[in-house]
């Protein structure tokens, strides 16, 4: 059912939601940017709809809520292992179509690739998603080409419309609440973009043979292996385990997992020395092919959702979408090698 709500109505709904959920949305962190006097749009808890930033893309994605950058799994005392407790409340996450498509990728790895991940699953089942309709594409978006510009698996949608907000609700348990706080019912279709500035074309003939292309060499020098592209990506989910003693009491400690990046040194280091993909170009190739080739080979659809955050953030102005578009000639190049 669709609803038209005044701002006060939306805020009343948010307040009721907050009884059972923590509500996360892209917000403006004043002064939170890396440069002085710059803000950062990133995920944070909200109380009111005005806090949600619609007119800019968030620097980091929603994934930090489902997979915290640093997450404690166990607490250790001298002789006990205690599981970290789960959040008291569930979560409502405001996100765009590309990001909701990314949720499917997170589910794929964390729920369907081998054992279900206990920590992911226990939060995931208590999460609801509110779609933020996109009226226009941002600078580096290429969702249309990745077919992630439209989605209907949201629990609700919300966007500004004239002097109020429109919401499409898919969640039966919210229906009466929305009826109560809305001004009227109407047919709502969340906005979506149909055209982007950036286009990508993933050539059909990609195989692991493109690893032999010279196209990757360029990144040996350009890339600084900082990992920003991975950390902002809504579909990157790698982590590293860490065990620690607390410095103030060495008898107790914890085991946690923290986000990892396949671009950063140490990612492949095995105990006793030895590592794989030492060159940044090799790491770039590993990442790019995962996003637009081998994830699909394993799971049937592309990993990349075309949000363009990796392009937005790269300090060396390396464009992922530009790299995808070089795959076509790389395929021809390596085919030629074999002939």
């Amino acid at each position: 059912m669709g609803f038209f709500l005044a701002k006060d109505g939306v805020n009343a709904v948010l307040e009721r939601w907050r009884d059972d959920y923590l509500i996360y949305a892209p917000v403006r962190m004043a002064g939170g940017g890396p440069y002085s006097d710059t803000d950062s749009i990133q995920y944070g808890q909200i109380h009111r709809v005005e806090e949600i930033v619609y007119d800019q893309k968030s620097r980091y994605s929603f994934k930090e809520i489902l997979l915290p950058l640093s997450q404690t799994l166990f607490f250790f005392t001298e002789d006990q292992i205690k599981e970290a407790e789960e959040l008291k409340k569930g979560a409502i996450i405001f996100l765009r179509s590309c990001d909701l498509h990314a949720v499917k990728r997170l589910d794929q790895v964390y729920l369907q690739n081998g054992f279900e991940d206990y920590y992911y699953q226990r939060l995931r089942k208590r999460v609801k998603f509110v779609l933020m309709g996109c009226q226009k594409a941002f600078e580096n978006c290429f969702c249309v080409d990745m077919q992630t510009n439209i989605i209907d698996t949201y629990d609700a949608s919300l966007e500004e419309n004239g002097d109020g907000y429109v919401m499409d609700n898919h969640c039966a348990e919210w229906e009466s609440l929305l009826s109560k706080y809305s001004l009227r019912q109407l047919d709502v279709r969340p906005s979506h973009v149909t055209e982007t500035n950036v286009h990508v074309e993933i050539p059909p003939g990609v195989s692991i043979d493109v690893a032999k292309s010279k196209m990757w060499d360029e990144y040996d020098g350009r890339c600084i292996n900082c990992g920003r592209c991975n950390f902002v990506c809504p579909t990157c989910t790698c982590f590293t385990m860490q065990d620690i003693f607390y410095t103030d009491n060495g008898k107790v400690g914890e085991r946690r997992r923290v986000a990892a990046s396949c671009m950063v040194d140490g990612y492949t280091d095995v105990a006793g020395g030895g590592s794989y993909r030492k060159k940044n170009g090799e790491r770039m190739r590993f990442k790019v092919l995962h996003k637009v080739y081998d994830f699909k080979k394993r799971f049937g659809y592309h990993m990349c959702v075309g949000c363009g955050r990796c392009d937005d953030i790269c300090p060396e102005y390396i464009s992922f979408s530009h790299c995808i578009n070089k795959l076509g000639s790389a395929v021809k190049e390596v085919d030629g090698n074999d002939a």
Binding site: D117, T237, F239, R257, V270, L289, K297
Partner: peptide, 24 residues
């Protein structure tokens, strides 16, 4: 094959090579 592994259950990503998880 031996690769870096943190989880052993197809989540952490370290052992992935192409579409293959060495651990799984």
């Amino acid at each position: 094959m031996e690769r870096k592994m943190c989880c052993g259950i197809g989540k952490c990503g370290h052992c992935k090579v192409n579409d293959t998880y060495i651990c799984l």
